[in-house]
Each structure stands twice: as structure tokens, then as C-alpha cells.
Design a protein around this nucleic acid. Sequence first.
DNA 1: ATTAGGCGATTTTTT
DNA 2: ATCGCCTAAT
Length: 740
Amino acid sequence: MSFVDQVNPKQLEAIKAVQGPVMVIAGPGSGKTRVLTFRIAHLINIGVPAYQILALTFTNKAASEMRERVTKIVGDKSKSLWMGTFHSIFARLLRVECEKLGYGKNFSIYDTQDSISLIKNVMNDLGVPSQNYNPRSVLSRISGAKNQLITPEVYQEQAADIFEEKTGLIWNEYRKRLKQNNGMDFDDLLLKPIDLLTQHKKILEHYQDRFKFILIDEYQDTNHAQYVLVNLLAQKNRNICVVGDDAQSIYAFRGADIRNILEFERNYPDLKIIRLEQNYRSTKIILKAADGLIKNNVDQIPKDLWTENDDGAKITVLHCNDDADEGGSIVKSIFEESGKHKLQFKEFAIMYRTNAQSRSLEDALRKNSIPYSIIGGVEFYLRKEVKDVLAYLRLLVNPADNESFRRIVNYPSRGIGAVAVDHLKKFAVSNSLGFLEAAAHAPEISGISAKGKNAIAALAAMFTKYQRLRGEMSISEMSRALVDEIGILHIFKDEGTPEAIARWENVQELLSAITEFSEQNAEATLEDFLQDVTLVSDVDRWEDKFNSVTLMTLHSAKGLEFPVVFIAGLEEGLLPFYSAEPDRKTLEEERRLLYVGLTRAKKILFLSHVRIRFRFGEMSYQSPSRFIDEIDSSLIETRRSIAKHYAAEPAKRKIADSSVKARRMKKEKSESHYFTDEQPDYDGQSDEMLSEGTVVEHEIFGKGKIVRVSGSGDSQKAVVEFYDVGRKNLMLKYARLKIV
DNA sequence: ATTAGGCGATTTTTT
DNA sequence: ATCGCCTAAT
């Protein structure tokens, strides 16, 4: 093998240190994937059977790319590698072993949406009003506790307030229901393997002997449960290699814990630490900017990043008026840069903090006929009609799945309402049956009208029929037949509205996806397909073969790189994201997120911010992100945008009156008061003396009193308590306040 | 009892 | 856009 002349000495060291625990601290663009690939290839070449290697990656895409690259070096042997995300690898393991934990092999995997709706049902049944306790927050507490390996019992004992008490109760019931439904949530895919391995010594030994060499990519984003799980597997052979970068840790909200890196060192005192600090991706200017930014974090492992690449162009900061203008400015820059450097659209990426930001950017791209593909957002497999069809398939595979039953029992409308379902549920509970089983006994259930009984019995009969057909037809034929019989395609067709047509297309696309899936792997089962759609993300499906601009969140951008990167919305409150005054930890995580974004860029980097943004249905004055100030100003060139020509709609946004309340977009058609995309007059307002207590008047918000003034020069800001609309954070440069 | 339609509230980031 | 909650119609 010829990797020796393709890597630097540090990389070589990381590739060859195959025995014992190794931690590779890999800066952005330092050839981490190359190291992992060669390391696996090296293991195989020195005689380690591929099935003894377990490689855990952050995305499925990273896994399949790596497998491809390994295959190029070692050939077919790579097929028996276990490579994938934690969730998909351990779901696979559970399919084999779950019966020892009392689950059926056909268990359903509940995504966040499914889990929330189960929580809602549980709360209903327990009489906990969902007005007081948001099911989403309840789930996130439960999930947090689960990833810390806290049991419901301990959680309930330690409950510090009424919310936690209720959460404990809900959790307990939620857990029971999941089990009854033969279902696991995302966290269970990590916790159940831990249960399995700690409860069954033989099985633990089996897998310890099986996975003699373990590699973990993006180690900084693993949580405590993942840490424990991997250590169980690795503790016997101790051939474990983790690769990560603390500066790119951006999943704390999901339980990712920097302590994993510290504990790792404690757990393996003979740990070998290798640092990869040479960057092969970005220009000197980009790297310097990123490095300068991240140095503002207190929590970090110090690093000395360097590159032999050119200085490159300065970073451009685009000052924009509003979101339409931002889209226009970005489009204009795409045209300019692609003309100047002969770049294709696929070499551009636009990144942002929240999915909601994509809309105005899409508008601008569409208006200028630039092809784009978008990662994330409302994902295909989360669309209602798609989830509805999937619920049918899921119930077919796992008849115990009461949540799926609930979802489809009256979709499309069959005259089975809440009351009928309630009777059915009572019958099911008192006879210890699943809902679908109970449905087969519809005639025996009291309290339901004859019509309702017929409808329920017919539904049950349909499932019986398709359970039989599953054995006789291919999964794609069977799915088509089922969708046909449900009749939703006709319903959408008849409705004929653009929305309905879109739904029709989505269902067709789902059916094609099933066909394609079964063509790709001939032995694939419906279970495999269902598992795939819940565990494979949008990024995983993304391919750069289309010549289009890519739009995505900063979180999704991890692990990718592009010649030209735009990061939109660098504004206080948005990036860094916060609603209340942010604490240090929050700010540091947000800073790391931007760091990840900056370091995706190879050659050219644009940052943009707007003056006025529609947020939470409200017009909001935004001040530029503090992060812009943290980048050395000698690396930056600013541009005030006048992108009228490219902006999606002339940026006309109505504000009806002085009470700036939530306004639906559709209501925004009539009436007075427009903002235009003309440059605001910078009338030197900020030069005047404004201090606490000054009474001022704003053209829209009316009169108010200044509470606080901060910053200086162009970035001077004030908090103003308006008499009519309450407290607002304004940037003086743009707010055009009049002293009263 | 069920359904349709209107209205208001809700949106950080993801496996 | 979607969901829950309301009311009026069937």
C-alpha cells in the first residue's frame, strides 16, 4: 500500500498506531477522513479480518464515503466492515439480539415526532394538562436523563420540582407504552444495547471478541450513553481510536459532552494522543479568521493550526437591509464569483442557523433561476402524507404498534372518531390486546355504532389481507397495492389543489423510494426500509452530482467542504442564537458552530447580516453578531448591498400600525407603511447624545424611554422601553430615533 | 357522533 | 405548514 507518501508524519503516526487506545485531535481540514480511511485499510492489509472492525461515524454519508474509499484500496473485503452511525449500527445489532430484552425483531423505531405524540397520549391518559407541560420539553427532559443513564426510578426520587415529578410519572408510562408497542425511541437504540451487554456477560464477550478494533469519528459529539456503550465493547481489547475536535463540538443540546474526551484520558491512562494541526482545506485568511474567533472560547484544548495554502481573498461581510435583500446580495455575489473564477453552482453553499431562514434565500435563488438543493428543513420523510403511509407500513410490520394505529385509524376519514377509538382502546386494554388485534373483534365492542364497527372491522380485515400478501408479493408491489386500496391518491387527485398535487407526488415518490430500495438490495425487507427512513438523514441522501447551490444549517454542514461559502444571518439573537441573555456556555457553543461554518470554506467566504428580519411573526431590528467583531478586521472587507435587481420581491413589508403584533404573511397585502430596499439615510443620529432615561420616538414603535446604551460607533445599541410595544433592542445606526 | 372549517399558537440546532 | 381547539353542520 502506498499511503506513506500521501500523508504527513503525524497522519502516518495516527494510521499506524493500531494497538491500544489512541485519541486523534484533528483540526478542521487536517485530513481526518484520509487518516481514518488509511487506518482501516492498514488494519485489513496487516491481516485483521474486516468484520472485526467497527467504525462509528456521525452521519451515514460519512460512513458510505469512507467505505467507498476503503474499497478502492482493499477491494471487496470492505464489505464486511461494520460502519455507520451509532444509531444505525446498534439498531442493526438489536434486530439480532432484541428478543433477549423482550422485544420482537420487528420493533418500530420512533422518531422525535412519534415520541412526542406518544407523550401527548400518555399525558392525556394521566390527566396532565399539556397546556402546563409542553410535551416537547417533557420529551427533551426524558431524553436528557436517558442519555445520562439515569433511570426513571432515580429520576423520580430526585425530582426537584413539580415539573420533574410529572416528567418522571410521564416517563414511566411512556416507557411502558413503548415496550407494549414493541417500539424504541432514538435513545433506546443506545440504551437497550447497554442493557443487553451489561445483563448478558456471554453476549458482551461475544461482541468484545467480534469488534477487536473500534474507531469513532466526531468523538466530540458523542454523549455519555455512547461513551459507556463503546467502552463496554472496547474494554477487553482496548484497541480503540477516537478522532475529534473539541472546537467543533456543536451538539451539547443533544447531550454531547466534552467530558467524554477528558474521561477518556482518565479511563485509558496509556492513551496515545496525536494532534493533526496542518490544514489542507482553507486559505490562510479563512483559517486565521476561524482561529481568531475560536480563541475567544475559554473551554478548549489549545491548538496551533497552520496551512501552506495561499493567503486567498479577504472575507466579505455583506450589510443588508432585510432578508430579501440578503438573498439578493448573496445571489449577486454568486454571479460575480462564478464569473470571476469560473465556478459551477455546486461549488457554492449557503449556511444558516435555523431552517426558517432558508425561505427568503430560496426565493432569491428561484427568482434568478439558480438551481439549488436544500438539506434538512421539513424533510421528505417527515411530511404528513408520507408519515401517514409509513404508519400503515409500520403497523403491517409491527401490529403491536398502537401509535401507528392511532395515526391511521381514521385517515383517510372512515367515520371512526375519537369516541369510537376510546371504546376500542378500553376494550384493548381490558383484554390485553394491541389496538389492531382489538379492531378484529369490533363486533364485540360495546358503545360503538354499527357503522363504526363495520368500518373498524373492515380496517382490521384489510391488514389481515396485506399480512398475507406480504408473503406473496415484492415489498414494492405490496406497498403500491396497499396505497391504492387506502385510496389517498384518488383523494389528492380529486382535490386538485396545488397542495394536494404536491402530496400526491410525495406519496408517489415514497413508493418509488421503496422500489429503488428493494432494487438496490434484493434481500431487503420492509423492516429494513422503515429503519432506513427513520435513521438516514437528509445530509446522507445529499449528493453533489447535481450542479446546484447547496443550502443547509450550520449543523448539517459538519464534515462537508465547499470552495465558496456564505453564512447568512450573523445577527445577535440568531447567531449566536438566544432569546434570553445567553450564558458563557451557550455563547461558546454558538461560537463553535460558526467556527464549523467558517472552516467549511476552501477559498472564498461571505458573511451577511440584515437590519430588519421577520422573526416569530414579528418585525425585528437586528444588530450584527458580536462574532463579526471577533474576527480580525484586517481579514475583512465590508460591502453595503444594493441588490434591488436580484432581490426576490421588492422588499416591501407592511407594518400596519404602531402595535407591531404577529402578522401572517398572507395578511400582508394591503395598507400603508412600506419599508423599501433603498439605502437608509445614515443621518448621523448615533453621533447625538443618547443616554439612559432619554425619551425618544421611533417611526414605528412610537415613543419610549432608553433603558440601556451599549457599544460605540456603528455598533452602538440601545434597549428602549416603548410605551406601546414594550422593550426592544435597537441598533442606533438603523433605528433613526428622534429625541423628544 | 363525526366532520369541516376557522382561528390561534407555535418554530434552534438532529439521530 | 401543522396541530389542537372551537363551533356549526350533517
